[in-house]
Amino acid sequence: MSEDKHPSWQRLLLLIPVLLAFGLGLFLYQGLGKDPNKLESSLLGQQVPDFIGESLAEPVRAISRADILGTPSLLNVWATWCPTCKAEHAYLNELVAREGVRIIGVNYHDQRGPAQEWLVRLGNPYAFSIYDPKGQLGIELGVIGAPETYLVDADGTIVDKLTGELNERTWAQLKPQYEALMARQSQ
């Protein structure tokens, strides 16, 4: 007699909440692994904006966008007040020594004296560092905090961006793209 009251199509309707719950579960599940600090930068795939900064080492020397072009490079945002920068510093040195990567420093919201001292003490992996005490270049690049590392090709296009520490694991994410750029460069 219950078959009379509930035709089969109506029984199927009972499945709707189950399906909805399942769908919602899936939707929320794929959000679980996401890092809320990782933002989509719309600058990816675009040119590094024009800028004029000064060298950390030589206050009189102006550095502009043209200085970072020519070869695929990493643009590494660092500061002496940033603990993670200290943590990744040895790895930057290693990367330069081992793979010959060109790393350009952006000394972010820092003071010249302590910053220079830090490079003397911990070693200097940077081809040169741009002194950005007010974070103006940081704003142009869409920097949120330190450390951040941008992979920039020889023409100044931002290819990828890493928020947080550069280490063995995170370099593995950037490396294939870096090597592809280098391969294109040597052709």
Binding site: E40, S41, S42, L43, E140, L141, G142, I144
Partner: peptide
């Protein structure tokens, strides 16, 4: 701001495919 920091920076996000849900 959006060019540099994405839609995240807007408290009032625009209506488009990614924000459909």
């Amino acid at each position: 701001m959006v060019q540099r920091y994405g839609d995240f920076i807007l408290y009032d996000p625009p209506f488009k495919t990614q924000t459909l849900v």
